[in-house]
Simulated scan of single mutants.
Amino acid sequence: MDQTSSENDEAAGAGARPNPDIEGAEREVGVGPWEGPWPEDDRFDPEFLRHGDRRNVIDPYRYWSHEAIVADLDAKRHGFHVAIENWQHDFNIGTVVRTANAFLAQEVHIIGKKRWNRRGAMVTDKYQHIRHHATVDEFLAWANTAGVVVLGIDLFPDSVPLETYPLPERCVLVFGQEGPGLSDPIRRAAHATLSIAQFGSTRSINAGVAAGIAMHSWVRQHAAPR
């Protein structure tokens, strides 16, 4: 089966690693055609069974259809959301989406410009729900209707340390874009703004990194390791 361009990107995103037995060679990513009787389970995709599965997915999802994987993820998603402001085409959004997929966020919300650089997502946007809000007011109206607590992540004089803050199970972690940080409307509307402890010389950390730290903080408080 010929892969689509996105599937090719996904296979590349799995990161082929060198084969230790052959100097300079790369190990093929994923699995080949199914061997033996085909499973009697409609979650499996006949095309993947027939031709192999080279996607960047965890082993339990090998040979499953895309729809089956998303449905399984939807049944287990966590209670937190992530939002990032995108007024100047922030290049961190792809990283945020990829990390949100890893930590199984409910949704990623993009506030501002709808267009964003998908390369950093490494095709995880195919499995992660993403919602666009053209304005801050539109985003805040959604949060109010959904009943989730809005929490800003940024360095302000009145920010509370993320490390000691009890994160609500149903919340949305909001990040400003690289450089400007959180906009004033988000800051004013947030239930609280949280800061990440830093110990070096720089005044801030990358927005994509900050998002990963904040999501993992929620996971540590609410999700059992597996």
Rank of each mutant, 00 (worst) to 15 (best):
P33Y: 07
H78W: 09
G181K: 10
G147K: 01
P20Q: 06
R119Y: 07
K76S: 12
V57N: 07
F156K: 09
A14Y: 11
V97P: 00
P18M: 10
G179I: 13
V174N: 01
R119V: 14
I130C: 04
D41A: 08
G24N: 12
G120I: 15
R220T: 04
E85T: 13
N101K: 11
R27G: 06
R119K: 12
R50L: 11
S183R: 04
E23R: 11
K114M: 14
G52Q: 15
N8E: 13
H133D: 11
G52S: 14
G120C: 09
A83C: 09
I205Q: 05
P225I: 13
A211K: 01
Q3W: 08
S195N: 02
R27M: 13
D72F: 02
R170L: 08
I22H: 07
R62Q: 15
G52C: 15
R43W: 07
E35Q: 05
S5P: 08
I69G: 03
R54C: 03
N117D: 15
A141P: 00
N206T: 10
D45I: 11
E178P: 05
Q177H: 03
Q198V: 05
G24R: 10
D90F: 01
R131F: 02
T135G: 01
F48M: 12
W218N: 00
I111M: 11
R17Y: 09
A190V: 06
D9T: 09
H89L: 15
P46K: 07
P166V: 12
V209N: 01
F44S: 10
M215L: 09
R43H: 08
K126I: 15
P60M: 09
L151P: 00
M122T: 14
R203T: 14
W87V: 13
V96A: 03
V96H: 01
F80S: 08
G94S: 04
R17E: 13
V31H: 01
R119T: 14
T193R: 00
L194R: 00
Q88P: 00
R55E: 14
P168R: 05
W218Y: 02
M1D: 05
Q88F: 03
S183V: 12
N92V: 12
W116K: 03
H133Y: 07
T95F: 02
L162W: 06
R62T: 15
F44G: 08
T145S: 03
